Simulated scan of single mutants.
Amino acid sequence: MDRFDPAQPVLDLSASSTVLTQQICDVESVSGDEGLLADAIVASLAGAGHLEIVRDGDTIVARTNLGRAERVVIAGHIDTVPLNENLPTRYETIDGEAYLWGRGTVDMKAGVAVQLKLAAELTDPVVDITWMWYDHEEVSNDLNGLTRLAANRPDLFAGDFAILGEPSNSQIEGGCNGNLRAEIRTFGLRSHSARSWVGDNAIHKTAPILATLAAYEPRQVEVDGLVYREGLNAVGISGGIAGNVIPDEAMVHVNYRFAPSRSGEEAIAHIHETFPGYDIRIVDLAEGARPGLDAALAQRFLAAVGGEAKPKYGWTDVARFSAMGVPAVNYGPGDPLKAHADDERVRVSQIEDCEAGLRAWLTGAV
């Protein structure tokens, strides 16, 4: 293949998954600017006669229609958070371990590279496969490519099991915690700070809220054999008008990560029970997803990958599939602690392990 040009990318799906990761990462695709990479993905699959290709905006779906008894959906997003002098990619060795360094290597273009390579090569898998590569994951839900695709083509989500290529150190992470954000407000009476006794300080009234949060003991909840850790924390606080004014309003921004055994409504109720009598406004709510490892298909996947399934503490798009009745897990190369980091980097061995695990499962080798 000729020297790779990220300005006019041609993805080489015959290259190793590591080289393909590098090619995909070197095509800048910060959220809202995924078009060039989406074009390259479509062009790279043009000769794959075993795949039906559907494009919705910058979301690409490629699926087999072999009449298999079971269908699996395997998805990954193609956008990244903004760059910070971490492209083009480069290789580096740390303690004898080879890494690919650069924006998107972890979150989550290494997983996309593995998926693209397998999509092109697996012409006769043991299950039908729907591959999804979608845009706008790193921004608001209303822009997310899966939100749009679910509205336009809900039929494409049909499946018996789903895998999302979120970084998980190439180990299975089942389901995900739910996520809630609430604003808890306090109110007082504004006055001049020189005569503070005339007013009523709303910021001071946040003290019991902060004390409750500091003393809160989050649950550890077992759900279908996996133990999820919850968290209830202040993530922001605001109030005040001027340096000589007693404030009449203040707000504590609270984030609640709740186990998937608890519904969104139950999570809201828990916030109200924990902070009775306060003005509470729920500003964001995303349901969690149960592990999705009960089915025989999922158990075969676990056997092919090896290791022990773990819970996903953060929220991911597996919850979308779960809400549509498709059990889903996270499985992709990369340490999630390096996602969005300036030194974002993925172990080459994890890219190779992820490809080997998916290939063995999808071909029935294990």
Rank of each mutant, 00 (worst) to 15 (best):
A214H: 10
A309R: 13
I351F: 01
Y331D: 11
G332D: 08
L297V: 10
R290L: 14
A15W: 09
I282G: 12
Y331W: 07
N84F: 13
V235F: 08
D95I: 03
T212P: 04
P208G: 12
H204S: 15
E230A: 11
Y134C: 01
L180M: 15
A250F: 04
M1Y: 09
A202S: 07
I280D: 08
S170M: 12
A341H: 03
L66H: 13
G325P: 03
L20H: 03
I184N: 12
F4W: 04
D353T: 02
A194R: 02
V114G: 06
D248V: 08
G102P: 07
D95A: 05
G231P: 02
G364S: 00
P125V: 06
I351S: 06
R181N: 15
F275E: 09
A7D: 09
D2E: 13
E97A: 02
E138I: 02
Y228L: 00
E249I: 06
E183P: 09
L302K: 14
D224P: 06
V252Q: 07
I271D: 05
L226T: 04
T274I: 04
E137D: 10
R103C: 08
R300C: 02
R262E: 08
L45Q: 08
S263H: 10
A242S: 06
I203G: 02
C354W: 00
A158C: 12
A158R: 15
A211T: 11
R290A: 15
D2N: 14
I60A: 04
T64S: 13
E287D: 13
Q8R: 14
P9F: 11
H204Y: 15
G32A: 11
L36H: 03
R359P: 05
V245M: 03
A211I: 09
T89G: 07
I74E: 05
R153F: 07
K205S: 14
L210K: 05
V30S: 00
K109N: 04
A40N: 00
L37M: 06
A360G: 05
V318E: 01
S193Q: 06
H270T: 10
S191Y: 03
L156Q: 08
G288D: 03
I172T: 02
E222R: 13
A339I: 11
N86C: 10
V139C: 04
L149A: 08
G178Q: 00
I184F: 03
V42M: 03
I184P: 13
I241N: 00
A150C: 05
V42H: 01
P260I: 02
T18N: 07
A234F: 02
I78M: 09
A119F: 03
E273A: 14
I41V: 15
V127L: 00
I53M: 04
I172P: 10
A289M: 12
Q299T: 11
L156P: 08
A211E: 15
I129E: 11
A40T: 01
A211D: 12
W315P: 11
L116K: 00
D33E: 13
